[in-house]
Design a protein around this nucleic acid. Sequence first.
DNA 1: CCGCATCCTATTCGATACTG
DNA 2: CAGTATCGAATAGGATGCGG
Lengths: 125, 125
Amino acid sequence: MTTPLDPEMFDPVCPSGLMPFRVGDKWTGMIIQCLADGPRRFSELRVPLRNITPKVLTKSLRALERDGFVVRTESAGAPRHVAYRLTPLGRSLLGLLDAARAWAQEHLHEVLDAREAASGSRLPR
Amino acid sequence: MTTPLDPEMFDPVCPSGLMPFRVGDKWTGMIIQCLADGPRRFSELRVPLRNITPKVLTKSLRALERDGFVVRTESAGAPRHVAYRLTPLGRSLLGLLDAARAWAQEHLHEVLDAREAASGSRLPR
DNA sequence: CCGCATCCTATTCGATACTG
DNA sequence: CAGTATCGAATAGGATGCGG
């Protein structure tokens, strides 16, 4: 349930930036994936999202909270312990993310090929 | 097959801007919808996308072309006649768009409610 | 009819440094 | 540990006007 997140969870060679889909902002989809099998702490999330700055992660998490996809829970104690977990509404997005990944599995290479071909034939209109 | 596009096709009251998903840029998803049941002309596309400027529409269409989702065909003659149609790859996105709409049908109101509630309780952290 | 050229604004993302 | 504050670069999106 709470095994550590794989730092290689998001392949840098196939960043979701190449995907024709986005959920929320640049990081939202990956954050939701990270929360798929249990609550995670702020700094735990920063591991797979290797270079995310705290400011940007905070912003994405606040948006997810505001929209009811995620709840934030702070337990008293020092050092601080803050956890983020998906709500049922947040979990309702997982199916769509799966569908998107399935599409990518099947078709993304076609997009990359088309892009490659387009950068070859440079006949600007 | 080529009945005119409904100018009210995209409800201004529920713009896709509120959706937590995006395909490509702001207009891409709507363009693909417009092309779902047959080729369409440039100016035909501008109708349901009421306020789109030609520059922006062009940019989105070029991106769709580059990625292999759409093909552009220009028939000789004056005035010009340019049509855009989905490729099989482009059509492969329709299922995903349907799934996204189904999700929205079922859950978007929860998001809006959550957003509403959040704007009520203003306890900034 | 189908764009392109220019200019402008707002937002997004990130780097860096600092705090309870 | 979990953020906040400030700054800067890049990009998206749009308004307007011209051109083949």
